[in-house]
Design a protein around this nucleic acid. Structure first.
Length: 599
RNA sequence: CGGGGCGUAGCGCAGCCUGGAUAGCGCGUUAGACUGGGGGUCUAAAGGUCGCCGGUUCAAAUCCGGCCGCCCCGACCA
């Protein structure tokens, strides 16, 4: 391909509004352009990379035995109502009514396709002999993000690979799940990502029913914890921590102060109260009133910690958990929101506490009266709860003890979620009547798993973790073109001819090659080549030609080297072939070990 | 949806506080010349509803009100 014949609008300056590297570089390199918040056009170069990511995913899905199909983005709203997800998705689901003749149809744009695939399965799968089967598609998803951001990392329209397994038994599901898990590892490896599979929030099935594939990156939206000691890794939404030796945890050995009612006018947040009373947030114990399946409960969390509603929901064995509305809080506590406490609740509600509440003595708690708190609250003197009401109810924090090993500690880091595998169970098959007959002619709900990969995020995550001050550093597997041929001066006939010839030979040999045939200064070409980040650059110049030489340089290496003009196409192909055999991260590591990139 | 920021030529910005004449600068673009190994030089030119609507004023890019859009933080995110 000739540079002049495709469309590569690179930019010298950072566009206003772009902040994170992937967004800045994708815009500057002419990969994408914004249409509106959360919607981007993929320009020719960006599309090539997107297609390559897509193809890697497709090949590995096929290899894992999944079968490809394509479902529509449009779906009838009734399907979403049957599974209750019209409500669960709420505003995120994009739906609308269309007029067709004298009637109206209510349609939704698919944010995911469990309903559609399960509906299909219900009509075609009826026997255990048809199982197991895994379907997948690569298709555009729509979600009305409240706040699209970070370039292509969070958009309201995005390309997703979604796969769905149907199995006859949990054992079969585990096998299907493992196949997908392994395929994901191969995909992200091939994409050159430095990824980490982590345990993720898994809903009703529990256990190891869900993993997210994360790429640690400074600008990632997710936070994961990782134990270097034993390798335990989990999303903070999910991560557990090691518990105390005994329950209830013994109170600290401190002199107990009397319970004292203090005025805290207008101070209802942890920050306000701790500032007003001049104490640390860890001195405070906050009391959260939840509705667990509609039943009010009080949950105690230390002031400097954050409640984890998933843990609380699981601990209580509840299906649904939500913060109680103000009316309920006022009824339970007898005070406005912000002054709830374990001492003197107006209505007796079950009291639960996170383990770390035990580490605080003489705590500051809400007094269940407007504008008042207690100081010096202690258990069991002022409030108490049975041993079985203590649990791991908060979000883990950096430095917490690892739940898996006895000596490790959890370290947090931000990460980009590029994939998610999930054992669904029978939630959708049951709601949509997707059943099969087993060998004994018994009807069962199909057992499902679902598996998603954000294709656009593969590109963004790669760029976030693979760039320098000059631009993107693509692996061969994702680069829009593997090779850029860069004639320094196209007006020089010998240079132009040699470059064109090399380009033609490589193209004919099936190499993805771009010839920068623009009549611009060498500096412009070098800078654009670095910005876009083509893995291999072949420079054709007068000086080299006189000695029968071309200059080649890997984007991730600092040094270039010369190769003979004679047989250059073959040598370039050989270089590519050798580089393809080595994992991208390893190539980058090797280069880093050799020299600082001067570029 | 709460908090903050921004909106002036294709892109990046100045001007606004303290209202005033033809709205500037850099890059890019067009034409020509020189140049030719890391965004080069010179000459000439094109390109603007100053986000939109309304108000104040003799006069609004500038002051006031409303709205829209974009970005960031938070809430939300099967």
């Amino acid at each position: 391909m000739l540079w002049s014949r495709t469309f590569i609008p690179t930019m010298k300056e950072t566009p206003e509004g772009a902040e994170i590297p992937s967004h800045v570089l994708m815009l500057r390199a002419g990969l994408i352009t914004q249409v509106m918040a959360g919607a981007y056009t993929y320009l020719p170069l960006g599309l090539r990379s997107l297609r390559k990511a897509e193809q890697i995913v497709r090949e590995e899905m096929d290899r894992a035995g999944a079968v490809e199909l394509l479902m529509p983005a449009l779906s009838p709203m009734s399907l979403w109502e049957r599974t209750g997800r019209a409500r669960d998705f709420g505003n995120v689901l994009i739906h609308f009514e269309l007029v067709r003749g004298n009637r109206k149809v209510h349609l939704a744009l698919g944010p995911t396709h469990e309903e559609i695939i399960t509906d299909m399965a219900s009509r075609f799968i009826s026997s255990y002999r048809q199982l197991p089967v895994t379907f997948y598609q690569i298709q555009t998803k729509f979600r009305n993000e409240e706040r699209p951001r970070f370039g292509v990392l969070r958009t309201s329209e995005f390309l997703m690979k979604d796969a769905y397994s149907f199995d006859a038994s949990l054992e079969q599901l585990n096998e299907s799940y493992q196949k997908m898990y392994d395929a994901y590892c191969r995909i992200f490896e091939r994409a050159g990502l430095d990824y980490l599979p982590v345990e993720a929030e898994s809903g009703p099935i529990g256990g190891d029913a869900s993993h997210e594939f994360m790429v640690p990156a400074q600008h990632g939206e997710d936070v994961l914890v990782h134990c270097r000691q034993c390798g335990y890794a989990a999303n903070t939404e999910r991560a557990a921590r090691r518990g105390p030796q005994q329950l209830p945890p013994p109170p600290p050995q401190e002199e107990l102060q009397p319970l004292e009612l203090v005025d805290t006018p207008g101070a209802s947040s942890i920050e306000q109260v701790s500032r007003l009373l001049g104490c640390q947030p860890s001195q405070l114990v906050k009391t959260l009133i939840y509705l667990a399946d509609g039943r009010p409960v009080a949950v105690l969390i230390r002031g400097d910690h954050e409640a984890n509603e998933n843990k609380i929901r699981r601990f209580l064995g509840a299906e649904r958990l939500e913060l109680a509305p103000p009316a309920v809080i006022e009824q339970v506590t007898g005070a406005p929101v912000g002054f709830a406490g374990p001492v003197g609740l107006r209505e007796p509600v079950p009291l639960y506490a996170d383990w770390d509440v035990a580490t605080t003595s003489n705590a500051v708690v809400g007094a269940n009266q407007a504008d008042k708190h207690y100081r010096g609250a202690n258990r069991p003197r002022d409030f108490d709860l049975p041993p079985e009401h203590w649990g791991d109810l908060r979000v883990v924090a950096d430095g917490d003890p690892c739940p898996r090993c006895s000596s490790g500690h959890l370290r947090t880091s931000h990460a980009i979620e590029v994939g998610h595998v999930f054992k669904l169970g029978t939630k959708y098959s049951r709601a949509l009547g997707a059943r099969f007959n087993d060998a004994d002619e018994q009807l069962h709900d199909l057992i499902m798993g679902c598996y998603g990969i954000g294709i656009n995020r593969i590109l963004a995550a790669l760029i976030e973790t693979s760039h320098d001050r000059h631009g993107i550093i693509w692996p061969l597997s994702l680069a829009p073109y593997e090779v850029v041929v860069l004639p320094l001066n196209v007006k020089d006939e010998a240079v132009g001819r040699a470059a064109q010839q090399l380009h033609d030979q490589l193209e004919q040999a099936g190499v993805e090659v771009l010839l920068d045939d623009r009549d611009v200064r060498a500096g412009v070409k070098f800078n654009d080549a670095d910005l876009i980040g083509f893995p291999l650059r072949v420079t054709v110049g007068q000086r080299g030609l006189k000695q029968g030489q071309l200059e080649v340089k890997w984007r991730w290496e600092g040094q270039s080297r010369n190769i003979p003009l004679e047989g250059a196409a073959e040598q370039v192909q050989q270089m590519l072939e050798e580089a393809r055999q080595i994992p991208f991260r390893q190539l980058v590591e090797q280069a880093r070990g050799q020299a600082e990139p001067a570029s």
